[in-house]
């Protein structure tokens, strides 16, 4: 069994992942691994394919080619099909040919224990802070339509509520419990979105630009916040971020994309000094 240990230590593994929209290759043969308990940041200039990579992991898009593993189990796999067979310009065109196509919907991915937040905050607008979190508890229900309607699941319902209250307390959102989610200040909305993702009890958390639109003070708070929840919830975090302060401070490793291709990977210091990365992305930032 010991030789399999390495496999389970890797929480998420992308393998030869390619996404082609029409004639445009958005993500080009990207492979990476996220280890247990690690924070891996995915960085790159605008249009480098970071969000597309995220959307493939979360089931929003099925990749054109490649496979994704979660805790050693294959969860996504595809090979160019139909019209794409002729159009495909990426690599490894035949690597997955003839293998089973696996393309789960986002809810199935979430059920496996992978939760996410969005680049542009997507809260349930007409619901309160508490209800936003409570909704995320729906997924782990054991009740069916009948038992839920006739309140035969009262015990479970009470537990869902209690867990949501608990989460509110941990996330320091208690004081705004009954306010509409959209009435919160921007930074708190981010917190709430992360809290809602945590309510699905994930092991892997995907954060899509969590610090977008935040000022330096809020970014600093978020940095500490992410570090704190990783410890408290035993999370593995895979995130996209533009704020270099945040990325360099918090990441265990950084993976850099440019025009859909992986150009570097390593510890923050290594990536910071990688000439290719400087050329593609950090050059401007270092001039400051």
């Amino acid at each position: 069994m010991s030789h399999e240990k390495k496999e389970t230590d890797t929480v998420l593994k992308l393998e030869n992942l390619t996404m082609q929209f029409g004639g445009v290759i958005a993500v080009d043969n990207v492979s990476l691994e996220v280890g247990k308990g690690e924070i891996l940041s995915l960085i790159g200039p605008n249009g480098a394919g970071k969000t597309t990579a995220f959307n493939m992991v979360t089931g929003v898009y099925a990749p054109t080619n490649g496979a994704i593993y979660y805790k050693g189990e294959k969860i996504v796999q595809n090979t160019p099909q139909g019209r794409m067979k002729k159009l495909y310009q990426g690599e490894n065109a035949d690597l997955y040919a003839g293998k089973r196509v696996i393309a789960p919907t986002p809810d199935k991915i979430t059920k496996l224990g992978i939760a996410r937040t969005f680049q542009n905050i997507r809260l349930f607008k007409s619901q309160t802070v508490f209800e936003n979190i409570l909704i995320a508890k729906h997924m782990r229900r054991t009740s069916n339509l009948f038992t839920a309607t006739f309140r035969l699941n009262a015990k479970e319902e009470a537990q869902m509520r209690q867990e949501s209250e608990e989460l509110l307390r941990i996330m320091e959102l208690e004081d705004v419990r009954d306010e509409l989610a959209t009435s919160l200040p921007y930074g708190k909305q981010r917190h709430l979105e992360i809290a809602r993702a945590l309510a699905t009890k994930p092991e892997l958390l995907l954060l899509d630009e969590p610090a977008a639109g935040m000022n330096p003070q809020e970014t600093l708070e978020l940095t500490q916040f992410i570090g704190r929840i990783r410890g408290e919830f035993g999370l593995t975090i895979f995130m996209i971020e533009h704020h270099m302060d945040l990325v360099m401070e918090i990441s265990d490793r950084i993976h850099v994309l440019d025009f859909g291709k992986s150009i570097a990977e390593g510890k923050p210091d290594e990536v910071r000094n990688d000439p290719r990365v400087i050329e593609a992305y950090l050059g401007g930032a270092q001039d400051e």
Partner: peptide
Amino acid sequence: TYGRAFKAIRDDEIAAEAMG
């Protein structure tokens, strides 16, 4: 809890799906 899920779908389909 089903009613809450319905309202979530109404408010934001993509987020609802991402919440399982």
